[in-house]
Design a protein around this nucleic acid. Structure first.
Lengths: 209, 209
DNA sequence: TTTCGCTTTCTAACGACGTTAGATTTCCTA
DNA sequence: TAGGAAATCTAACGTCGTTAGAAAGCGAAA
């Protein structure tokens, strides 16, 4: 038994090393440098060895995407330590954009259209759930009844992604993008609260009239 | 003179046909199918001919990006026909997302990280200016003094791009994305107005106290 | 200890890509 | 109608992802 377990351990180790090497190349040299031969060279193997661990390049890249989302979730959960709900949302937005700025290439691959939408959805689910919960407690805290929590979630997610994108699509730097994200979040939440209180007022007037 | 002008005309014609062929391939079959050989074949030439009209593939793609932005600007200006400022903004947002949904591959290339940020900024400038003007009249209409018009513009742009991205990044369809965009825009504008009126009230109280 | 067989790993290759050099053809001019 | 410039093509280079088949390594049975 000992020998096959050792083999399995070595196999798993190589698997891990390939992912690490790929991640390193991606982060330091960008997606164009991320070739199978390069990765194989970095782990001191020939190219075909990579295919014993991953069906194809896409599968390997998907692992990097998953890794990226786990990393992002960690950040998110750190921000969730914050006691105050409003500050928590603000920090979450800020950290999201900061992540995009600190790992630009990884972030770009995480959100590349080439990645299958279902797969991306799968690996991003935990982060989406965390956002959903956060948004839920926020709405409870401010007595704001959101018409559709999922839609509100998507709106926030999309907004943050769009503004984070500005960091590399335009020449808006990351610091500025972070400020923009906080402002946008602030405006949206304020808007939702304004709408909610307007609805309340409308309902009250109807009751009285 | 007649002969060299004819040559120039033919040259320009070929140039145009290459762009059209490239655009057609991109829109109907996606970026993966957009190869030099394929484009050349579609205009019934051999591959190297393309290089007499474009320095390299990137330059050709940049023309497609520019074309896309012109198309988008057209939509934007159509939406700007709307008399009411608020409806105009709403329609602009809606049309932006609709464009992304109707030309998904073109939109993706327009916002691909591989495109140089400066070049993108150059071709997108007219649209940004139009948005800036629209936002300006909106803020005048509602007596909202935006702290920084450029930042507000970037925020809106980023937000719309992010939500439009949901159309292909996640499984949010284009119809839903368009609704989300309208809602997000509505919330942000409401938030800005709420903030502005809060500032006004604060100032008034200070004057009185 | 030596040979067998399985696993691991490598070399070589395929087809497609962007791109370039050099041969070939086309077409105007003298 | 011959010469030369312009236009165009064929062939190739180096790179990519990927696969087939040879070579090597290594634990177990004779």
């Amino acid at each position: 038994m000992s020998i096959s377990t050792r083999r399995a351990r070595e196999r798993a180790n190589t698997h891990e090393r390939i992912i690490e090497a790929a991640l390193h190349v991606l982060e330091t040299e960008g997606p164009a440098a991320l070739t199978i031969r390069r990765i194989a060279g970095d782990v001191e193997y020939s190219a075909p060895v990579v295919y014993q661990h991953f069906a194809n390049k896409e599968a390997l890249v998907l692992e990097l995407v998953a890794h990226g989302h786990r990393l992002m979730l960690t950040r998110f959960l750190e921000a969730a330590q914050e006691a105050d709900v409003d500050l928590r949302m603000r920090r979450a937005a800020s950290e999201y954009v900061r992540f995009a700025g600190e790992h630009p290439h990884l972030y770009q691959v995480m959100n590349a259209p080439a990645i299958d939408a279902d797969e991306r959805g799968r690996v991003a689910q935990p982060a989406v759930d965390a956002l959903k919960e956060l948004l839920n407690t926020w709405s409870a805290r401010h007595d704001v009844v959101l018409a559709d929590l999922d839609e509100a979630c998507e709106t926030l997610w999309g907004t943050m992604h769009g503004i984070a994108s500005l960091g590399y699509l335009s020449n808006v730097g990351n610091d500025r993008a972070r400020r923009l994200a906080e402002q946008a979040l602030h405006a949206i939440l304020l808007g939702w609260r304004a709408e909610a209180s307007a609805n309340d007022q409308g309902r009250r007037e109807k009751m009285q009239g």
